[in-house]
């Protein structure tokens, strides 16, 4: 991609770079929302959407989108209008911007910067800000509680996420996600396993488990979906939103899920590397493998969502501060020792 970009106008290059992740997110969101409903249906012994579009209700998300576009855009009288309108877009922008450093395939990455992981973690913390903004601006007590919970939760869970990402960076020796992926190529671990980082050392398996729990909490999925827990806080920070603004929140939530899953796939499962060494590799297959790995993680998140009840807010904090954070730092130190010894 980069070699073509030098021949065309810089502005056009930026637009193309911006359009590719956006297309991926939008297509993914349509599929994922339909997929989640189908998965939920099958887990709950029912069929899920079956009508719209003919085959297994494949057009359900499109129908929903059309409905949401037509809806009246309601803004509560006493809401802080600017912040209220701005919050959903800021939220989506934050998760969208983070896609810039994700290496989708060996031939395409939005921006090849040396501090990719750092940039990603920094930009996703804007999500917290937009959630508080939405909660505060709605001028609704339930929204406010949802926003405050969300802030506490996301700030707390960022710590174990960062600690586990650091563990990987320690092993990989680079903050650039492309470099991290490239060094996972090949199939020689124990003779047959791919050279993915999760197979490189036992502490990285622990790191992955901590990382996965943390991203569940970061992307507000059950059992940590407290900010929007509909049976307690009505809708949390989304309570007052309707129509397209609400759809932006949903889009951002799904985009966030994909983003963190793709990050997990990059850091632990070899990113765009094929699991069969050179077989089925190359830029296009790379994209296929990368999305497959990411979507598998998304599927596990959905699976968990439709199986488990939800934690309470103090239990959530207990898990984070008393279990995950100490464990992730101990894990970091042990990984460092392992790296020194072997």
């Amino acid at each position: 991609m980069t070699e073509y970009a030098s021949n065309i106008h810089p502005m056009a290059a930026i637009l193309i770079h911006a359009a590719i992740p956006l297309t991926i997110i939008l297509v993914y969101a349509l599929v994922a929302i339909w997929g989640e409903r189908k998965i939920a249906g099958f887990i709950q012994d029912r069929l899920g959407p079956m009508r719209v579009g003919g085959w297994h209700g494949w057009a359900q998300s499109i129908a929903d989108l059309l409905k949401l576009i037509q809806k009246e855009d309601i803004i509560p009288t006493n809401a802080s209008r600017f912040l209220f309108k701005f919050a959903p877009f800021m939220m989506f922008a934050a998760s969208y911007a983070a896609f810039a450093v994700i290496p989708f395939s060996s031939a395409y990455i939005g921006s090849m910067i040396n501090i990719g992981v750092f940039y990603l973690l920094a930009i996703t913390s804007i999500l917290t800000l937009s959630v508080i903004m939405a909660g505060w601006a709605s001028n609704n007590k339930w929204s406010l509680l949802g926003g405050m919970r969300s802030a506490a939760q996301m700030v707390s869970y960022e710590v174990p996420t960062i600690a586990t990402v650091l563990t990987v960076v320690l092993v990989a020796g680079s903050l650039n996600l492309m470099t991290v992926t490239e060094m996972q190529a090949g199939n020689d671990t124990l003779g047959f396993l791919p050279n993915w980082l999760i197979f490189q050392n036992p502490f990285l398996i622990v790191a992955f488990i901590i990382f996965f729990i943390s991203i569940l909490a970061e992307s507000h999925r059950v059992p940590f979906d407290l900010p929007e827990s509909e049976s307690e806080l009505v809708g949390g920070y989304q309570t007052e939103y309707s129509g397209m603004r609400w759809a932006m929140f949903m889009l951002a939530e799904y985009a966030d899920m994909l983003l963190l899953s793709l990050l997990g796939a990059t850091l632990f499962f070899g990113g765009w590397n094929s699991p069969f060494g050179d077989f089925m590799s190359g830029p296009v297959w790379g994209f296929f493998w990368f999305m497959l790995k990411g979507l598998l993680l998304v599927f596990v998140m959905m699976w968990i969502r439709w199986t488990l009840p939800r934690y309470r807010v103090d239990q959530l904090m207990h898990i984070c501060w008393n279990i995950l954070i100490p464990l992730s730092f101990i894990n970091l130190v042990l990984t460092a020792l392992w790296e020194v010894i072997f």
Binding site: Q44, D45, S229, S231, L308
Partner: peptide, 13 residues
């Protein structure tokens, strides 16, 4: 009761 605590699937079972 399960639904209140976020467990959606048992409800439908």
């Amino acid at each position: 009761f399960g639904l209140d605590l976020g467990a959606f699937s048992p409800f439908l079972y």
